[in-house]
């Protein structure tokens, strides 16, 4: 049995991947990377989900019925890393636009 969040996560990742392969616009590439990142985040978060679990504070959950804290930490870290990467890529896209006058990867002509 595969649960619903996993299907969404996998489809987000593959959506991002196909966009990365098929699209030619730099901004769309940035979006593709971001969508892939969100897919992976969703995958991680849904790994830790437990039905009727509570927040992972040990003293509140004597029966250990809590969602997994480690994957949440992983997700938080990955969100931060993803933001750094996206910001870096967008700033590079701006620079490329200034130099080439286009965001299309096929139209590569340096401005004089």
């Amino acid at each position: 049995m595969i649960s619903f969040p996993f299907i969404i996560a996998i489809s987000l990742i593959s959506l991002g991947f196909f966009a990365l392969v098929l699209k030619r616009n730099l901004l769309k590439l940035v979006m593709a990377v971001h969508i892939m990142g969100s897919g992976v985040n969703l995958f991680l978060i849904s790994l830790g989900y437990r039905e009727a679990g509570i927040a992972p504070i040990f003293t509140n959950a004597p029966g250990l019925n809590m969602v997994l804290p480690t994957v949440q930490a992983l997700t938080l870290t990955n969100i931060v890393i993803n933001i750094a990467i996206i910001a870096l890529m967008l700033s590079l896209a701006i620079l490329i636009y200034q130099h080439y006058g286009s965001l299309d990867t096929r139209k590569r002509k340096l401005k004089e």
Partner: peptide, 28 residues
């Protein structure tokens, strides 16, 4: 100030980001 180096960095970052996400997925 050179267009080529921004382009190279962009290319590098796309490959690295995808590689990184693949690794994280596997870790998951």
């Amino acid at each position: 100030h050179k267009g080529e180096s921004s382009e190279a960095a962009f290319k590098y970052m796309v490959i690295s980001a995808v590689a990184g996400l693949m690794i994280l997925f596997a870790v998951g």
